[in-house]
Design a protein around this nucleic acid. Structure first.
Lengths: 343, 343
DNA sequence: TCCAGCAGTGCTAACGTTAGCACGAACGCG
DNA sequence: CGCGTTCGTGCTAACGTTAGCACTGCTGGA
């Protein structure tokens, strides 16, 4: 690797001069700058950020710690974040936790060793205490999920309101047996969404237990498939189904297609999140649209501001509206009226 | 930040001893090791990789340079790669080029400055000459697309064969007016796929120009929508459509739904790539399935081996089979026979 | 003419870690 | 008892870059 020293020797000047010329120091003559740049370019010099970091400069890497990049929520976030960060000269490090707190810890250790400038994290349900320590040493921001021990900086969705609206839609259509299928309650988001579901039920004058709810530890597509099978058996099978996870939504849609369940005839479904395929599915999926792009951009801007201004930012957190319910063909009155809307 | 020096001072020993204890040097007594580790843990010491790198150690970061992480091809690749790399202690840097060679260059500059250990890249059509120089200084591997100047290490799909099979399927069904919609020909993949399409036509005894082909510079969903509109007008509109890009496929499906085109009645469609939504669309999309997971794993293992063994690896490249055609309901004979298969 | 000031450059230390070499103490063997 | 060996540790240099300070030569004002 070419160093400033190599350039200096070739030009017969000192390393300091080379360094200053490359950083466009005003004390260096234009002629020298030109010669140095010329030589640097010819020799293929690339500055060594590791060395610069040792002199107190901070790194230009921010990390995104998420459960799984294949989830379209997270890939969208990664994209927005990357675009915003790149514009300011930052690079993005990607760490997938698979919702495992030990994997999360191991990544945070590596990120700390690499001295990342900042971290945006979708934390696991209960982060390891060492993870908490490590995060505290770095500007960080929680995304979507929130854990109290990680501080108050959080960008997320009003999960309670989102699920309340989704459920209220079914209640308004006249459903009384409504089921909920969501992520594990130990996740803050899982708990909030369930609470939103229940709020809507009680607001609609329905007993809390009017719906059967299934909370899976793994909010996976497979779990969605199994859960649907269980829910749809029995005499008092629900006429409405509310979903609280995008992976579950995917699995549920597949299973409903496979079993030939008539939607919305036999069952009205409100999904969670939106993907291109959701509008193609059966009659089109009524679903909760989330403002992910806006959130990602918000995160990026918050972090960038935080990285530029030393003072510890104070804003305790920023919540974002749940976005609106996207009405398509998968919901209707339980007595068989026409669908409530279409794309 | 805590340094080895802080630990040394607290314990009244030298930095060398601390460093050696932390790296489990056999010359250090067990007792000292224990005390050092204890102190390090208490004080929250995290080694500074930048400093270690300056002593000749290589970084533990590999970069993935792709057009857009939101494309499910690439998010799957990122996931597989991340999983494999993480297991060996590597972190993944994510760089999106948006298929812009200048963005690509700017990322490669940053990656070089950060001294990434290796790069896996889906290159743009014609990488900048400086990009080529930068890549040559680092172990790298081309993925999917291939550009001669970047060397012979390449993991990809047999695009020619993939499109030949897809097209041959329609030819076998009796279609004679077959259209092709693919990415720009300046991309190696675009050219290969078009060649595969034409091979199948000539093998089927159809004239080369039997099909109308549209090659868009932007292989975007929007372009897919527009192109479908153009293709379907006129008296000799095609009865078969072959697609050569996943983004185009998405756009085409949306447009076909929007226009109410009967598939496969009016038009038989063979898509490219597979996503959960493709099986929900209309009658189910017959499409070219690609072995992305296998490719990603292959890449990861190749790069890991390359990073461990100094000698320049030799294998010129590895091609992967095109995977098989996934038969669903979107293809049938042009005279209106039953669909050729279903999911 | 002399000195202050400035433009342009060089010298050197420092960042945190690691490795080569050296040092002192204890131990075993002849 | 002397000497070589081993164990455990310390000192120091080096990695590439940057910043503080010092130095040289030149210009301009008194």
């Amino acid at each position: 690797m070419i160093t400033t020293r190599d350039i200096a020797e070739r030009l017969g000047i000192s390393v300091s001069t080379v360094g200053r010329a490359l950083s466009d120091d005003s004390r260096i003559s234009e002629e020298t700058k030109f010669r140095v740049r010329q030589a640097a370019s010819e020799m293929g010099y690339v500055g060594n950020r590791a060395a610069r970091m040792m002199r107190g400069a901070s790194s230009n890497v921010v990390a995104l710690v998420i459960p799984d990049i294949r989830n379209s929520f997270y890939s969208t976030i990664a994209h927005e974040l990357s675009k915003n960060m790149e514009a300011e000269g930052f690079q993005l490090m990607l760490s997938e936790t698979d919702d495992d707190r030990l994997v999360e810890l191991s990544h945070l250790r590596e990120l700390s060793a690499n001295r990342v400038a900042g971290v945006i994290i979708v934390p696991t349900a209960r982060p390891h205490s060492e993870s908490v320590k490590l995060l505290k040493a770095v500007p960080h921001l929680q995304l979507l999920r929130r854990h109290p021990s990680l501080g108050a900086q959080w960008f997320g969705v009003d999960d309670h309101e989102a699920l309340r609206r989704a459920t209220a839609h079914l209640v308004a259509l006249g459903h009384t047996r409504i089921a909920y299928l969501g992520g594990p309650e130990e996740l803050p988001t899982g708990a909030e969404r369930l609470r939103g579901f229940r709020s809507a039920l009680s607001e609609g004058g329905l007993p809390d237990d009017a719906g059967r709810t299934e909370l899976g530890p793994p909010a996976s597509a497979d779990h969605g498939r199994e859960a649907v099978r269980r829910l749809l058996t029995g005499p008092d099978a629900p006429t409405g189904l509310v979903l609280g996870s995008i992976q579950l939504t995917r699995g549920v849609l597949e299973e409903l297609s496979a079993q030939g369940v008539k939607v919305p005839g036999e069952l009205s479904v409100v999904g969670f999140g939106d993907e291109p395929g959701f509008s193609w599915w059966g009659p089109g999926l009524t679903t909760t649209g989330l403002p992910i792009q806006e959130m990602a951009t918000g995160c990026a801007l918050w972090l960038l501001r935080r990285l530029k201004t030393k003072p510890v930012n104070d804003g305790p957190y920023t919540s974002v509206s749940p976005g609106s319910l996207i009405l398509r063909g998968s919901t209707a009155s339980p007595d068989g009226e026409a669908p409530s809307g279409s794309a």
